[in-house]
Amino acid sequence: MISQIVNGLIFASILFLVATGLTIIFGILRVVNFAHGSFYLMGVFIAYSITRFSSEPALHLAAPFIAGFVAGVVGIAFERGLLKNVYGRGELFELLLTYGMIFVFMDIFRILWGSMPVSDPTITFKLGIISLGGTMIPLYNIYLILIAAVLATFLWFLLSKTKVGMVIRATSFDSEVTSAFGVNVSWVYALTFFLGCFLAGFAGGLMLPVTGAWIGLDVDMLILALVVLVVGGMGSIKGALVASILIGLIRSFGISMFPAIELAIVYLIMIVVLIVKPSGLFGGAEVES
């Protein structure tokens, strides 16, 4: 029971980080970044390469941050170099462009890291195991959940209490008005993409010791992040938090209780939410009439 909760929360934490990146990007650019799972996968692979250098725990703990940073920079390059070209042509093309990038990344990963799954649980062994109500849990797993919680708090603070956050929120509300106030909307977009992709890459880095990575995980992760995005409400971070925990626990308990259809249940939830309340649990007013 406890181990299921912890597993569910790990999964929820990761989903939350990935989906929050997706939701922030959607909230501000109105683009659903289909390549978001690829940034997650990129994070795992980069963390893997970093941890090849030594088995020093500090390096292993730092790896997700570096991986997130690299993913963020690649995200900026993608937004400035490619995505920018199709703004204003309608969401169809923005969506398809990010869709195309899934495949570009997929083969680039294959070229750089090969086709075999990678993982490295060194840090899990180094940190050891603690007992939680009689259940043995790797300390790393607790760390993972805590760091996601810290990041969630930080994000909330950044977006709701700081000037940067105010500018970002203003841009999502009305980019034309915001630019009229002298804010460089291009930079807000780039920054947003950095932040969104950082979160995905960081989450990937965190998962290197837990599940590792394989080609195909990008699409799986994308789809689950889309579920969270939709269920929580597109553009809502609070919604992403609640939906991630919900989906994380459902999956974790579902895998042990009804292993055959746990994913089907997740999709069913997404469908029901889309039908009943397309704006999601925490989305604003109904977006379409």
């Binding site: 969506l95 579920v227 089907a264 999709y267 069913l268 997404m270 977006v287």
Partner: peptide
Amino acid sequence: HTRIYFTMLTIAISQLFYALAHK
């Protein structure tokens, strides 16, 4: 539904059947 909501629904429903066909 239209736009992205339509797209998301089609993904979700097809994935549901995909998962069922698997299981």
